[in-house]
Simulated assay, not measured.
Amino acid sequence: MAHPQLDGRGAVVTGAGGGIGEALARRLVEEGARVVVNDVDADAVRRVADDIGATAVPGDAASTAGVEALLDAATEALGRIDVYCANAGIDRTIADSLQASDEVWEQMLHVNVMGHVRAARALVPRWLPGTGDGGGGRFVVTASAAGLLTMIGAAPYSTTKHAAVGFAEWLSVTYGDRGVDVQAICPQGVQTAMLEQAGPLKDLLSHDEALAPADVAAAWVDSIADDGSSPFLVLPHPEVGPYYAARAADTDRWLGGMRRLRAKVDRFIDQSDQSDQSDQSDR
Rank of each mutant, 00 (worst) to 15 (best):
M194N: 09
T192S: 13
Y157V: 03
D222I: 09
A11F: 09
E68G: 15
A54V: 09
H116G: 11
L70N: 03
L149M: 07
A86H: 10
Q99S: 10
A212D: 15
A120C: 12
A23R: 08
P236F: 14
D273N: 10
L255E: 05
A214G: 14
M194V: 14
A163S: 11
G8S: 02
V190K: 01
Q280T: 04
I224G: 14
V40H: 12
P213D: 02
T174F: 04
A168V: 01
S229F: 07
T192K: 04
P129W: 00
R118K: 09
Q5I: 01
D177Q: 11
Q274N: 10
L171M: 08
I20C: 13
D60R: 04
E30G: 09
P156H: 01
Y175V: 10
D102T: 04
G21A: 12
G241W: 05
A146K: 02
A210K: 00
D41K: 03
D72S: 13
S144Y: 08
R121M: 00
D222R: 15
E209K: 03
R80T: 05
R118N: 14
A154L: 02
A218E: 12
F268R: 10
A263Q: 12
V265T: 11
Q274P: 04
A119D: 13
D273S: 10
V182K: 05
A65C: 10
W254G: 00
G166A: 14
E31F: 09
P125Y: 05
G89Y: 05
V216A: 11
A100V: 02
E22V: 00
I81M: 02
D82F: 12
A210F: 08
